[in-house]
Amino acid sequence: MQLQSGIEAIRANGVKLYALSYDEPDALRDFRDVYGIDYTFLSDPDSEVIRQFGVLNTLILEDDHPWHGIPFPGTYVIDTDGVITHKFFENNLALRVGPDVLLRAIGGESQESIAADAELPDDAGPLEPEVYLEGGRLATGVMCDLVAAFDVPEGRHLYAQPAPEGMVSVDLTVDDNPGLVVKNIQRPESEPHQLEGTDEVFQVHHGRVELRLPVTVNSGMVKQATHGAVQISGQVVWQACDDAVCDVPQKRRFELSVPMAAATPPGMLAPKDYDGISANEAAHFQKMRERRNRS
């Protein structure tokens, strides 16, 4: 569903898009039609492909109808030869990779982003992070990267983790927010750096430095968030040096107001007062349940 919004850019890269589940064909057809999705749905009602791939969720026992048969959800990116170049799996059924991450995986460059409206002091130094949410919008459960990016000039570096004693390593954090789910930060590879004239070695970042914090909107908050925007606030800290001099550690607060994309289809777990469109989920669910109880 969330991929539909990124499909133009994905198509522009000549990439085909398939989505497979254990639903019956007609359930997928209703879903496709109601939500206006034009990529290819595949039905695997006996979970044969899911089993062949080895991704059946075996924690759900066989007699636990109708939940048994679902995969550990995930996404593969394959090249022209059909060879897997990337894969994305999350250990929470509510989470999935966002279209912008996939675009990056297939080498697409047409990513929109919104810049942070962070207030920077007038005397801001030459080195300032750009903070933005990749894709510029959030949808429930769809992971998007909150990015803090630096372009570190030649001859300078940022301290990476772990920083030498008394120094500050570059970091990106968001403030506590019950409407937001935040996963583990992804840091670029760091390089060892030896201070001239000493044998002290520590880890640093050079050049383009991007810290990525995967975030998404809490599904339990969908009702409140659907019609508005999500506020993401937090801070970036860093310390830049060259071989001779270290700047004082810097801290920059940011606050982003991120629009919510159309809500993910509620399915059977929608709030009771959900008043959006529906793809006959309840009828299909009942049918699935009956078929599974028979078999």
Binding site: I10, G14, K16, L17, L20, P71, P73, G74, I78, L93
Partner: peptide
């Protein structure tokens, strides 16, 4: 090339 999603 393709993106193949296994979803719930």
């Amino acid at each position: 090339p393709a993106i193949v999603v296994f979803f719930r």
